[in-house]
Design a protein around this nucleic acid. Sequence first.
RNA 1: GUGAGUGUAGCUCAAUGGCAGAGCACUGGACUGUGGCUCCAGUGGUUGGGGGUUCAAUUCCCCUCACUCACCCCA
Length: 443
Amino acid sequence: MTPTRKSFSSIRGVHDILPGESERWQAIERAAGRLFAAFGFREIRLPIFEATELFARGIGEATDIVEKEMYTFADRSGESVTLRPEGTAPAIRAFLEHHLGAAQAVTKLYYWGPMFRYERPQKGRFRQFYQIGAEIIGSGAPEADVELLALLHLLFERLKIDGVRLELNSLGDEACRPAYRQTLQRFLESKQADLCENCRRRTATNPLRVLDCKNESCREATADAPMIVDHLCEACRSHHDRVTEGLAALKIVYHPNPRLVRGLDYYNRTTFEWTTTKLGAQNAVVGGGRYDGLVALLGGDPAPAIGFALGMERMAELLPPELGQPAAPDLFMAALGEQARAWAAPLVLALRKEGYRVETEYGDASLKSQMRRADKTGARWVCIVGENELTSGQIVVKNLQTKAQETLEADRALDELRLRLASLPPSPVSSPPPGGRGEHKAR
RNA sequence: GUGAGUGUAGCUCAAUGGCAGAGCACUGGACUGUGGCUCCAGUGGUUGGGGGUUCAAUUCCCCUCACUCACCCCA
């Protein structure tokens, strides 16, 4: 009787992060985690779904995300819930719900995890994708903007990612944007013939976005369009200047992009993206900006805030290939036969307890195949224990790089092995996982 | 949502209507207890799925699913 076999695969646009890739993610998470700590951000762990209304109100009813990209469904009680398409609205919801702002004037939060948008997948774009996000809530000072940008700048530096550029713009605020919007609208109305269908529609609904259109003729038509940076009110002008001065003082290179308009309604003043040309049609690795109105919009006392979202998949694609490689074992224990394995087991455990990476074979395998595996895993040392060794009280240790082989007293095996492993050069491939050898060596 | 391309072994790909193959990987051997290099052998397939045309379909046609890329949008 042959059982019918059904195979499964992950659903569309949703991917497994496999070993090989996960190490690269860990490299990003480690680097980001250290920087968040250094900058005084604390982690908040947020739910993966929220009331639909939170996103509809927070992100904006007219945005693409809310109009057509949300994973929305009714739960068993009939409440409409939505898998989070972004993290800022949930973060602010939690901030308000738990009165996190009461303990200090400025609250700095970060989070990471999956986000969900129902889009057609393509390079760098998925239905379940991962973001690292951070928010500074409670400060409208340009220094906050600069600090956030400096953190990201350091992150790219730490991860040795180049070929990215920081693009910067200001969207103004409620004092200056309405007037600019009208000015732009009038301009666009005079150019209707040259605009794509989409942009003709957007002239009325969201004229700012026309500036962001990739269409060649739209680009040309708006070449001499009025730009928001030239129509900022006094307060926004001053804010923007102090941000750019702050960046310059920290030697952080940025590229003014007066066309940088972001897709979520809540942004005002500073907006930014780190862009790259290495991700196909996608160019944003990190996006963010100031959203001084959102806290009040979600029912809190008005509080200015700024944040960013970083795309993990996109970031991982940009990592230099040598970063995040799996760490090779320090030692491969080749034990031959049941007795030898029993003898070696406590030794292996003792070394692992100290943080050394030790690999073994589970069942019976020839020395040849164990040596082959030791070589393939990249282990620096092999310890050979068999019947000969057990009767003679001597074990064999071989350095796979130098091929040097020596015989050790079995009784002193732990000390002798520790001696050799401790003198290993630092692993060139990656740092050990938390609690691994780093901890051991730091002692 | 729209458009284009691609689905054959674990991976990368051949086979244009006539017996489903190669390289890599994996396992074993040459070397009975010493890795890489070399050589030899072996395991591995519902050719994405369904239907049709045909004596005969991986190949041609239809449907469907998936993946990829692009539009759109963004992380």
